[in-house]
Design a protein around this nucleic acid. Structure first.
Lengths: 358, 358
DNA sequence: CGCTTGTGATCGAACGTTTTATCGGATATG
DNA sequence: CATATCCGATAAAACGTTCGATCACAAGCG
């Protein structure tokens, strides 16, 4: 075995020797650090030449070991499987985060999903300055663990923390967005609306928030909403046939994210249900995706790119010792009305509208 | 200012002191390193207890500095802007890469696009064991630069290197995929096919390869193909109106990737051109995207996920000192025929087909 | 007894930086 | 002339690991 694996071409010491100066001088000239170290212009030039000749490249590990800063932040999100299955939501998230990070000379490391506490400690192994955590669970143990660590953390699309100022949170106004959906559908004349979730939604803060918002909004309109109005949509098993059988039927479906809505659309097409004539469909996220579906998909727009940018900037501020002015950022959602929503079947103009369905 | 920023809760030395043993012993027990270091079971337990009590977490920087290994690999790809504009291609790439990496306990760092040589040297700053480079240019200087660095590199979707065994290459059979498109369209009766590219395609190896493949395939069918059959599609400026004016008109368009094809589809819909009756459209990549477009998009399927997995595994092998059996991996493409291709207008059955167009 | 082998353990030298403390000497200040 | 200040520069101590060298001691073997 090699006794010592040479890490790189040349070191600061070699440059210093070649230039006939001290290591400190070389460090000062090449990296500009060191307050008390002063070096004349002539020697500076000599050092720079020596560095170029030796193809010197500084070792970031050694520097980080000394300075306790790595200029690297981590991103924790869902399992890749779900990310590549879903629509463009995560791509925009990545775009926003990396945009801010790169322009401020930070690197981005993608981390595998970490559910347990133990691995959280492993996060603070010195390689990261901070972490953006998507859908971070609101667990006091987690906060406790982070408080013992120099690692900074910002939560993105996570439930509001029970400890208000433990870490910054960036979310969107799920409730407000959902309220707009209900408002839109109700004004079109819909009374029974199905809420579509996918498997494992219980552990997804956003899904829970949207369901709650939906319940509240329906309630505000005096419309009934119970467990029979919720369906766990399975990509594999078509469920629209079953939907047809319910009585009185739901005239609209709201899916908690675009991916499910898209699946509902293609399922409807294959079963022969016309959207929006027979059934209105609404999604959530409103990425580019919605523009190319069969009837273009009406959906709530979540400003995920801006949210990601905000989270990244918040984290950088924290890492660099600046205290953010606010620890809670909620972004408003808007409704993009496209072609997948319309009046329910047998709709009558509001003036002659009677309470019971004919 | 703080003179010394404490990096973390506790160090190996503190654990060793608490347990009353040497640092080497603690290192051996907690990390299993050190060949000659032996420690009895009783003391091992004492050390483990001390570590737990002190919330010890090893410093990866110090370890990497010593071992010259970081268990981290970098991913160089296009600017994020293009990534989030495009279809799911990059998501699947990321999925494949991270899948392999994570399960073998490697981390993934996303790097900003690096066009210059100088920053390439900065890559080998000790933080990375290797790099997966998408659309890596075939530049001898680059190879030269990498040969001076301990960094391993694997090229993904890049042109075959002029130095065959300098680094492993993973690509798909662009020519073969395009040949299938031409075969498909010609068998449907098309004779004039427009090739759609987007701005800056000249620097994209895949785009160039597909254009070449297209030229060859058209030639093999005895069909003319010249500069008037190539169009630079601009997302902003609709071009289908112009297309209508050409005489004789192209009856089919092949776009070098799905994103452009999708834009053509929505443009066609807004201008009133029916696909596939008036115009056939074919894309390349065939991600999930193609299933939800207005007519479902016929496209060449590129096994990007498998390609990404292969590239990642190749790189890990290289990093861990194993020599890959092959340095060139080309994946076959298949044609997914969907609803956006059909016979050209005024098509007559082959039996009465005459050479000239009526 | 002399020699090898094996066990359990420690010491201390790297790894490549940053940064504080220090040091001649020149120059300015009292 | 004594003393403070500044300039140019260096030595050396960290930072937290890994790992080769070493050591004491016991046992096995001829």
């Amino acid at each position: 075995m090699e006794s010592t694996a040479r890490s790189n071409g040349s070191t600061l010491r070699e440059v210093a020797e070649a230039a006939g100066v001290s290591i400190a001088a070389a460090s000062k000239v090449l990296h500009g650090r060191g307050k008390n170290v002063r070096v004349s212009v002539v020697r500076a030039e000599i050092i720079r030449e020596a560095a170029e000749k030796l193809r010197y490249s500084p070792n970031a590990l050694a520097r980080s070991l000394r300075t306790c800063r790595t200029q690297t932040i981590g991103l924790i999100w869902e399992q890749m499987q779900r990310i590549s299955d879903g629509p463009l939501y995560y791509v925009h998230l990545l775009d926003g985060v990396s945009q801010i990070l790169f322009q401020q000379h930070y690197r981005l490391t993608i981390l595998p999903e970490i559910p347990e506490i133990q691995p959280v400690r492993a996060l603070s192994d010195g390689r990261l300055d901070g972490v953006i955590w998507c859908k971070m669970p609101d667990d006091p143990c987690l906060v406790e663990e982070f408080s013992h660590s120099p690692l900074k953390v910002v939560a993105l699309n996570s439930p509001a923390s029970s400890q208000p100022n433990a870490y910054p949170c960036v979310t969107c106004d799920n409730e407000g967005g959902v309220a707009q959906v209900v408002e839109h559908l109700v004004s079109l004349g819909h009374k029974r609306i199905l809420f579509a979730l996918d498997e494992g939604w219980q552990t997804t803060p956003d899904a829970v928030a949207r369901l709650n918002g939906f319940r509240i909004a329906m309630d505000a309109h005096g419309l009934p909403f119970g467990s029979e109005d919720i369906v766990e949509w399975d990509i594999k098993a078509p469920a629209l046939a079953a939907w047809k059988a319910t009585n009185p039927p739901h005239t609209a479906i709201f899916a908690w994210h675009d991916g499910i809505a898209a699946n509902i659309l293609s399922e409807a097409a294959s079963v022969g249900i016309r959207v929006p004539q027979d059934l209105s469909v609404v999604g959530f996220d409103s990425t580019m995706f919605c523009e190319t579906t069969k009837p273009r998909l009406t959906a709530v727009r979540q400003p995920i790119r801006e949210m990601a940018e905000t989270a990244a900037q918040l984290l950088i501020d924290l890492v660099e010792g600046r205290t953010p002015s606010s620890f809670f950022h909620s972004f408003p959602c808007t409704l993009d009305v496209r072609d997948s929503t319309s009046h329910p079947p047998h709709y009558q103009a509001p003036s002659t509208q009677s309470r019971g369905n004919s």
